[in-house]
Amino acid sequence: MSSDKIKNDDVIKSIFDEGGLEKPSDSFTNSIINTIKTQSGDSVFVYKPVISRSAWLVIAFVGIALFAYLFFGFSPEGQGLDLYGFTLNFDTSKIKGILNKIAFSFEITPILKTSLIALTFFTFSNLIIFELRNRSFFK
C-alpha cells in the first residue's frame, strides 16, 4: 500500500469515526423488547431433549453392563445359545431367578433368548446412532 493511500485511508477513517455513526431514537431498544415480549411470551425457543445426554450415557452404560453380564456371566448349567455354529454362554439362571422371585415361574426359551439379544442390540445401536447424529457426525 502506498504512503498516499495509507494517508488517505487514515483521513477517511477519522472522518467516519467523527461523523459516521448515527443514533436511533431513545425508544429503539424498548420497542424491540416490548415486541419480543408480546410475540413470544418472554422466551426464545431452545431445544431441550427430554432425556439429557448424561442420562443417555448412564442408560447406555447400564445396558452394556447388563448385556456383558448376560454374555460373559458364569453359567452353572452350562447352557449355551447356538447361533449359526457359535455357542454363546448365556447365563439364564440369573434372569430366571430374578423373574421367579418377582412373580411367577418363568422359562426362558431359546427364542426368547434370541429376541432379548436382538432387542438389546437394536436398542443400543440406535442409541449410538442418535448420539452420533446429535454430535453432527452425519450432518
Binding site: 459516521g20 448515527e22 443514533k23 436511533p24 429503539f28 431498544t29 424491540i32 423488547i33 419480543i36 426464545v44
Partner: peptide, 22 residues
C-alpha cells in the same frame, strides 16, 4: 439470552444499535 434471559438481549441491542441503525 438462549437460556431465556431477555434483559441480556436488551444489552446486546444497546451495544450494537448504533451501527445497525447506521
Amino acid at each position: 439470552v438462549l437460556k431465556g434471559n431477555l434483559p441480556s438481549y436488551a444489552i446486546l441491542v444497546e451495544k450494537h444499535k448504533s451501527l445497525v441503525y447506521t
